[in-house]
Write a protein that binds this DNA or RNA. Sequence first.
DNA 1: GATGACTTCCTAAGTAAAGG
DNA 2: CCTTTACTTAGGAAGTCATC
Length: 211
Amino acid sequence: MAAAMVATVHGGVGGKHDKPSPGGGGAPQVDTGKYVRYTPEQVDALERVYSECPKPSSLRRQQLIRECPILCNIEPKQIKVWFQNRRCREKQRKEASRLQTVNRKLTAMNKLLMEENDRLQKQVSRLVYENGYMRQQLHNPSVATTDTSCGSVVTSGQHHQQQNPPAPRPQRDGNNPAGLLAIAEETLAEFLSKATGTAVDWVQMVGMKVI
DNA sequence: GATGACTTCCTAAGTAAAGG
DNA sequence: CCTTTACTTAGGAAGTCATC
C-alpha cells in the first residue's frame, strides 16, 4: 500500500480499470503526487453539487469541471473519488448516529428492566417469607391459636414489604388449606427450579435451590 | 479525527462470437 | 434472426493506508 501512495496521484496504480490520465491541468495540488487538500472554495462547490446530486454521472462531473472554474484544475478521477468518499463517509456518519440512538434506547431499557428485576426479587422474597410462615402454622397449629384469619397474620408479617403491595391474596385457605399450600409449594418449587442464580445481581433467597 | 487516494470485490451495460 | 455465453468497460461500495 505504501508503494501505491508513493506513486503519482493520478495515475499508474489505480484500480483495475484505471487508465492513464492525460497530463495537463497543471493543478498545484496534484502535480506533487502527494497528499493534497482541496481549498474550502473547491469543497464548497463540490458540496453544493453533492447536496443536489450525491451520485453525479460521468457526464455531470465533466460538466461540473467545465462550468466551475475553481474545479477546472482537478482531475475527473479525483472528482469521482471525492464523491465516492463523500457518500461513504456520510453513510458512516449516519450509521454511527443510528447506533448511538440505539445504544441510548437499550441503556434506558436496561435500566427499566433492572428496576423491574429488583422489584420482582423483593416480591419473591416476601412471598417466600409468607410461605414459610404458613407452613409453620400448618405444622404447628398451637402457635396460631384458633385464629383462622391466616391472611391477617401473614399481613402482619408484611413489614418486609417495600413500595409495592403484594399480589392479591384471596382468603383461599378457608376451603382447602392443604391443597392450596400444595399448589403454592409447587409453584414456588417450579419458580425456584428455574432460578438458576445466573441473573445479574441475583440475590440468593430462602428456599432457592442451590445449583 | 478528517480526508484524499488506493485496492479489492462486485454489478450493470455493451459487444462480439457461437449455436440453434 | 434470436438467444446464449464470454468478455470488456465503467463505476460503486467497502475497507484501508497515508497525510495533515
